[in-house]
Computed example of a mutant assay.
Amino acid sequence: MVTANRNALLIRKATASDAETILAGIRMIGDHLGTPHKISATAEDFRRYGFGPSPAFEVLIAEIDSAFAGLCLYFASFSTWRGKPGAYIQDLVVDTAFRGTGVAEALLRQTARHVRDKGGVYLRLSVDAENLTARHFYERVGLLHQPEEHIHAIYGDAFDALAGLDESGV
């Protein structure tokens, strides 16, 4: 296990040139969960949707001594009940060489600062039900499970069918 020197940890905003690194980080998650076959994203997808005039997400990249240590990919959201903006963390990953060194917590703290600087007041995320290590980590740093909520989603052909139910656009 590598011990991170706090002075050597750098967290920076990703640029379009980081698309391959972002994809590699996402693939680390798929490998960790035993579901690499579920990842169909490409580096071009990250370049296309994450950078430019209307990015769909932001990414913070952690580096230790110039080596990739982890990333946090998030995007803006809005709570209609709170009447305030926040962010949804889609992915948080730390390279296995740097796990247990504080990288994940540093990424979350920096993400919270970025969100707060834009007027945000909360972070949300979901975690794979089988990922007990991540669940315990999130609870330890204050992101608590919300038992009154359940995530519902629709993808692929089912999404296309739903979008095409009413051709009038209504």
Rank of each mutant, 00 (worst) to 15 (best):
R48H: 09
A62N: 12
Y49K: 14
Q90A: 12
K38H: 14
S79N: 11
S54A: 11
A56D: 13
R48K: 15
Q90I: 03
P55D: 05
Y49W: 13
F46V: 06
R47M: 05
P85T: 11
G83I: 09
F46T: 07
F51E: 04
D65K: 02
S40C: 13
P55S: 05
F68W: 00
F51N: 10
K84C: 13
S40M: 09
R82C: 07
A87M: 01
A76T: 15
F46S: 09
S66Y: 06
R48A: 14
S54Y: 08
P55A: 03
I64V: 15
A69R: 02
D65T: 00
F46W: 09
S54E: 14
S77H: 07
W81D: 00
D91A: 06
I39V: 15
D45T: 14
W81C: 01
I61P: 01
S77I: 10
F75D: 04
G86N: 08
F51L: 11
Y74M: 10
L71Y: 13
A67I: 01
F75V: 03
E63H: 08
Y74E: 04
A43L: 02
F57R: 13
D91Y: 04
F46P: 05
E44W: 10
L71P: 09
Y88R: 08
F57S: 14
G52Q: 12
S40H: 15
G52V: 07
G50S: 12
D65V: 00
Y88S: 11
P55R: 04
A87F: 07
R82Q: 14
Y74I: 11
A69I: 01
F46H: 09
D65N: 07
S77Y: 03
T42P: 03
E44S: 14
A67S: 07
T80N: 09
A87R: 04
D65Y: 00
G86C: 09
T42Y: 06
T42F: 01
V59P: 04
F68A: 01
C72I: 12
S79R: 11
G50W: 02
A87D: 09
A62T: 05
F57C: 06
S54G: 06
L71R: 04
D91N: 11
C72Q: 00
Y88A: 13
G86Y: 10
G52K: 06
W81P: 00
A76H: 15
I61R: 09
A67N: 05
V59A: 12
A62K: 08
R48Y: 05
A43V: 05
K38E: 15
I61F: 03
D91L: 09
T80Y: 06
F51K: 03
A76S: 15
L73P: 05
G70M: 01
S66H: 13
R82A: 13
A69E: 00
E63L: 14
S54V: 14
A41N: 06
E63M: 02
K38R: 15
A67F: 00
W81F: 08
A67L: 06
Y74W: 08
E44A: 15
R48S: 05
I61A: 01
P55H: 07
I39A: 01
C72A: 14
R47N: 11
A69D: 03
D45A: 15
W81H: 02
L60A: 06
A67W: 00
I89C: 02
G50A: 07
L73R: 12
L73V: 10
Q90C: 04
D91V: 10
E58L: 13
F68M: 05
R47A: 13
L60V: 10
Y88V: 14
P53V: 08
